[in-house]
Structure formats: C-alpha cells, structure tokens
C-alpha cells in the first residue's frame, strides 16, 4: 500500500503516524535510542515516563526542525549543516521544556522532568528529525511523523520494561543478567515487529 500523501489529509496523517510508530519503529526497526532504553527500562513506570518525554520532544523538535530546514537551510543552500543545527535545536528545546515544566507543574516535573536531561542528545530524537527530511512531508505531516516515532519508542520501551520486570524474577543465567538478556529480548521483539514492515511503504 502506498499512502497518497496528497490525498485526504486525515488519512495521510494517520498513515504516517502508524508507519512511524509500527513499521518503522525507531527503537525496534532502526535500533536508535537504545542506550536510555537499556538504562531506564527496568521498571514500567519509569519506562512510560521516559517514553512520554521522548514522544513530546520528538513531536515538537520534528516540527521545529522541519521549519528550520525548509525555510532556512534549503533557501540558504546549507542543508549539509542539518546534523549540527538539528542537535543544537533539540538541546535548546529540551532545556526550554525542562524549565517550563519545572515552573508550571511540579507534579509533571517530578514524573517527566528528570528524564529530560537524559534525552537531550538522544539519537532517536535526532534520527527522527533526519528521517523526516528525507520524506516529502508538509509541516503537519512532519508533526505527525515526529509524534508517531516518539509514540513507537514509548510503546517499545514500555513493552520491554514490562518484560524486564517479569524476567527479574526468573532464573536467568548469571552472565546474561541485565543488559545481556535485555538485548536478546529487544532482538526477539524487533523480529516480531518485522511483520509490520512492508505494510506501508513510501
């Protein structure tokens, strides 16, 4: 199935969202954002917290980076600077969001805030922005793509967190405990996500 990006706006957004979240799952298909995933996925609630922070940041940085890319980098003919520009924008955005959350809601800061510095230079977030500009999106679609990529990461880390909580009580051989068994779990899960591939293609 080939999504008609010029067709019904809602359908195209939904398709972009689903493809980013499932077929192109940034964690399980692209293997990006693995380090915070290994570090935080010991518990489901921490996984959800970090996943939500990543989702929030990918969504908005994809949109901001889209604007910067389309309206500054391309017209100035300096698209080759995208890597460095994107990462600086992401870092600044994360700082800004952290401050805003801290000021606005202490409760949200407690649950989300401590994860934000962790993901400032996360490859999943940079990867989302870099994948986004390889596709012919408009602003809204870039937004949907960022949201989908982050949401896919959220799903993946939550599932991994749940499995790890359960594995914790199992008799895992000593040498495989911790990151070892987690990488095996992630590998098996990414095999499972292979079934989604090919469902949607750009």
């Amino acid at each position: 199935m080939n999504p008609d990006l010029q067709g019904s706006p809602f359908a195209s957004l939904l398709l972009i969202f689903l493809s980013a979240a499932l077929t192109d799952n940034i964690l399980l298909a692209r293997f990006l954002g693995l380090c915070p995933c290994l570090g935080v996925s010991k518990k489901v609630d921490a996984s959800v917290g970090l996943g939500m922070a990543v989702t929030f940041v990918t969504t908005f940085t994809a949109a901001i980076n889209y604007l910067v890319y389309e309206y500054l980098l391309i017209p100035l003919d300096i698209a080759y600077l995208r890597l460095i520009v994107f990462i600086v924008i992401i870092a600044a955005f994360v700082q800004l969001v952290e401050m805003a959350i801290e000021r606005l809601s202490e409760k949200l800061y407690q649950s989300l805030g401590i994860f934000l510095p962790l993901i400032t230079v996360n490859c999943a977030i940079l990867g989302t922005s870099l994948f986004m500009i390889t596709r012919p999106f408009n602003l809204l679609q870039a937004f949907a793509f960022g949201f989908g990529a982050g949401f896919g990461w959220l799903i993946a880390i939550t599932l991994i967190g749940g499995i790890r909580e359960k594995i914790n009580e199992d008799a895992v051989p000593a040498g495989l405990r911790g990151p070892g068994i987690t990488l095996i779990v992630i590998g098996i899960m990414s095999l499972a996500f292979v079934v989604f591939s090919g469902m949607i293609q750009f």
């Binding site: 100035l76 300096i78 600077l81 460095i84 520009v85 600086v88 600044a92 700082q95 800004l96």
Partner: peptide, 22 residues
C-alpha cells in the same frame, strides 16, 4: 561564509533564548 554566519547566529539566538528563559 553563509554557513559560518548561520551557525554563529543560530548558536547565539538559542543561547540568548535560553538565558532569557532562565
């Protein structure tokens, strides 16, 4: 020149924004 100017401007703008925000 354009790329250097852009990077400097970008860095300054973001740093200024963060300082202001803080």
């Amino acid at each position: 020149l354009i790329s250097v100017a852009f990077l400097v401007a970008c860095g300054l703008a973001l740093a200024g924004l963060l300082l202001l925000a803080e």
